[in-house]
Write a protein that binds this DNA or RNA. Structure first.
Lengths: 340, 340
DNA sequence: AATACTTTTGCAAACGTTTTCATTTTGGTT
DNA sequence: AACCAAAATGAAAACGTTTGCAAAAGTATT
């Protein structure tokens, strides 16, 4: 049984292998420049002592920490699970460990977490969306930390961004409903104050409705939160009203899922009695009964590209240059929509 | 505009505040022992220079890293989202940053990630379940890193554990169906090889069926994976058969959700034509239409307790003592089950 | 005003690596 | 065998903190 007191560091390994600490270090970081027999001896010593490198020590020496920070609003529903998974996989493949945190749609907490991550000297940062505290932007710029924003595309973004044109997504959704002949369209969106995704989508949808001269009733405009149960509740209230819309355009698939359940709950048949349209095409949306009609946002590809780009930017020390990538959205016509 | 070259470290702050580096350090770590006016001067200097502490430097000095590792099978579905969120919140509150990774139900990858996290000198580790590579256990013991396993309870566990008795959950589910009068019960479980949760649940269910002398047909025993779409597919195959079971007991709510969708898809009415039972009570299960009958496992409480305990064990340097906490499971009778 | 505490601060030695520079070893040419 | 270049290794100085110990500055007690 190994005693606690004889700590096994690079020096202990060096002694056990009969080489200098420098050689041990090189055996890890530049194996090609240490002679194979020596390397073998080092490896044997490492195995025997159960040595585990200390990343903190190399971080302090100015090398990279080997971590990237990932800050998302939430992981309790499926909205970001795909993008988080894809990003993490990519980071992992590039050899990074992922520091992850959620802020619950509170940009103040986001800033707090960001600061904490910078104390840990993350080599890069990934955020969701383009709405952030000004302090967050300046912090990232001052520290020269490569960073990416995922989910939204904006040609004038202050951060590198990988995402979709949310206004277009909203427009596409509205146009699909209008094209089916709907005029009385209800809108269910999340609060848009600190959330440009919801804001842009809403604006895109409204623009399309105005163009088509569809009426926009405040009674049909409800605020839902990103949670199936709560969204279901909110929509139930709407469905209690007397004059119902013939279609419901939801800010994302979570809300749409709530809407679908609410409709079924009050005995409405979808899409016969009411059409329901989502945005996002989250995992599971296609498999609902009936399958949810929505606008696809390629979350996995966004996460992958963002992860790969961030890893590259870290490797090249390219914190300052802004890179923007726009991912196409596409209508996914499924069974929850039909002519009124 | 601050030049990149004049790095702002504790020395720069000290100079700007007219004190020694030691005092700056103390102002951060033991504010109570530095005189208020001095502290003020330090704080002002910190703000002016935009200084951000370097956690790596304090880690290397033997202090704690301020990070905990969280390794889960997956986050792409709702299974672990609750427990992950609760654990992270707790860790965050205790001042820790969370290094998180997924291994996709591959315990080899889990070991790999664990090793990586130890290189980063995480102060504690949280895992899901009790099935792990032997090397993972020894690694944790050798390194003396406080660790907890969430989700399963076992009085003989090798790690501290916070979780439910999965055999009881399986038994409870089976007994509920038997009690309703079902005899022809299909079982849909995930592969049990490296997953004691599924294994114990299955064993508990089988034991109850045997006791009740219910027939166990291999044709009604199918292997599903933890993914709504794939589970739906697998169950669809089962439902194509001629002699159908009158009830379906699913290894967890994800599979049950797939089963529900599959049944609806082929035009079966739930629970009139077939009863469906899940295990877990994941977020959203209560809100399905019809609401999913299941066995509740208190994921949020598990994550909270595990997080709080881990933080405590780190504070007290109590890596060796094993703590086990058992959380009660409870039947949640909802609309997807009825007498045959 | 001198003494004895107590509180606050500073000095300097760690912490575990990496890397520059210098030195030794190796292998290839004459 | 002598020489030279190239390859491999070692010595030591960093990296940015924290903390034990000692010195200095207050504060209370005579």
């Amino acid at each position: 049984m190994r005693r606690q007191r004889d700590k096994v560091d690079i020096l202990a390994v060096a002694k056990a292998a009969g080489v200098s600490p420098a050689t041990v270090s090189r055996a890890f970081n530049h194996p090609e420049i240490v002679k194979p027999p020596t390397r073998k001896r080092v490896e044997k010593a490492v195995a025997k002592l159960g040595y585990i490198r200390n990343r903190a020590a190399q971080t302090i020496h100015g090398r990279r920490s080997g971590t990237v920070g990932l800050i998302v609003p939430t992981i309790t529903n499926s909205i970001f699970s795909e993008v988080v998974q894809a990003f993490s996989d990519q980071a992992d493949q590039a050899g990074f460990a992922v520091l992850m945190a959620t802020h619950g749609y509170d940009l103040g907490r986001e800033l707090h977490v960001l600061r904490k991550f910078l104390e840990h000297r993350v080599d890069g940062v990934a955020l969701i969306g383009l709405d952030h505290r000004d302090a967050a932007f300046t912090l990232l710029e001052r520290q020269g930390v490569p960073s990416v924003a995922m989910w939204s595309f904006d040609p004038a973004s202050r951060l590198s961004c990988f995402g979709a044109d949310n206004a277009e997504a909203g427009r596409l959704a509205a146009q699909h409903l209008l094209g089916l002949g709907h005029h009385r369209i209800g809108l269910a969106f999340a609060p848009t104050a600190q959330n440009e995704r919801a804001r842009y989508r809403g604006e895109g949808a409204m623009a399309a409705l105005r163009e088509a001269q569809a009426p926009i009733s405040d009674a049909w405009r409800i605020e839902a939160v990103y949670n199936v149960a709560l969204a279901k509740q909110a929509i139930l209230n709407l469905l209690q009203g007397e004059e119902l819309p013939t279609a419901l355009l939801c800010g994302n698939d979570i809300i749409a899922q709530g809407a679908l359940l609410a409709a079924l709950h009050v005995g409405l048949s979808v899409p016969k009695d009411i059409s329901i349209m989502g945005i996002g095409d989250f995992p599971g949306s296609a498999d609902l009964e009936p399958g949810l009609c929505t606008v696809r946002i390629p979350a996995t590809r966004i996460g992958q590209s963002a992860g790969a780009h961030l890893a590259g930017a870290i490797r090249d020390g390219a914190a300052a240059t802004i890179h923007r990538e726009r991912f196409d959205v596409a209508l996914r016509v499924r069974a929850t929509t039909a002519p009124p």
